[in-house]
């Protein structure tokens, strides 16, 4: 096992870089982080739209959310990777395609987190902000959203964990993320499948479990400092 790690650790971590594009664990982490970050503004907008009293605004978003959540991410990935180039004529790389699909999925799930957070906030917060004369947008910006995002932080960290796990699907379209690299290593070594895949599992475990513990601690901290004024 140690010899295995010794020989392939760099390949596992960064793929072919610098002799090729970035791969491995570094790619997995980078893609996930970038996807979540890019999805935040869109997720915020969609979440606000989701709680809008205007049906013309919240119904299309609700439909979008339900449709996206009813189909596998892999299917959307296939659409993006196989069908889209035929239509647009632009062939995007595996990494770019994966990023686009991840941003789409993350913004939908973030939208639900934001919407749930806004709905969970006591009505009195918005009312008192509006009673002072603040418009709806100002009230959202200064009173509702700061609280919603603070309370939603554990859920957002959990979404990062989901995203990291989702990047593994890039394997199927040939993206050199960490699962793909592991299989490459397995093909090269051939006799140590158990070790290779246990190391892969352990890597994911450390990363994802670590982040979920962080989310758990955040949630505990939020509950200890009760941010309820009444």
């Amino acid at each position: 096992m140690l010899e295995l790690i010794d020989t392939y650790w760099l390949y596992f971590l960064v793929g072919q870089y610098p002799d090729g594009p970035l791969g491995g664990l570094a790619l997995t982490i980078l893609l996930s982080g970038a996807a979540l970050l890019l999805a935040m503004p869109l997720g915020l907008l969609l979440g606000i739209a989701r709680v809008s009293p205007y049906r013309a605004v919240n119904v299309p978003v609700a439909v979008l959310v339900h449709v996206v959540r009813a189909v596998p991410l892999l299917l959307v990935l296939f659409w993006a990777y196989f069908f889209l180039p035929a239509v647009t004529g632009i062939k995007t790389s595996q990494a770019t395609t994966m990023l686009i699909v991840l941003v789409l999925f993350d913004s939908i799930y973030l939208a639900e987190i934001v919407a749930a957070g806004i709905r969970a906030l006591p009505k009195g917060q918005l009312e008192s902000a509006r009673s002072l004369g603040l418009g709806y947008r100002a009230a959202l910006r200064h009173v509702v959203l700061p609280q919603t995002l603070r309370h939603g932080l554990p859920s957002i960290v959990n979404q990062l964990v989901s995203t990291i796990k989702a990047t593994s699907l890039g394997y199927i379209i040939g993206l050199s993320e960490v699962s793909f690299i592991a299989t490459q290593i397995n093909t090269l070594v051939f006799t140590q499948a158990v070790e290779v895949y246990l190391i892969l599992a352990l890597t994911y475990f450390i990363l994802c479990f670590g982040l979920s513990r962080l989310a758990f601690l955040l949630e505990r901290r939020l509950q200890r400092r009760p941010a309820q004024a009444s």
Binding site: L132, V143, P146
Partner: peptide, 26 residues
């Protein structure tokens, strides 16, 4: 609303802001 002061039964202070910030926000 800016010209009318309203005091609620359940106070509804903004928990993420200090007391002073609550008063200066609007």
């Amino acid at each position: 609303r800016a010209g009318i002061g309203f005091v609620f039964q359940h106070f509804n202070l903004f928990p993420h802001l200090t007391v002073l910030e609550n008063c200066t926000l609007a």
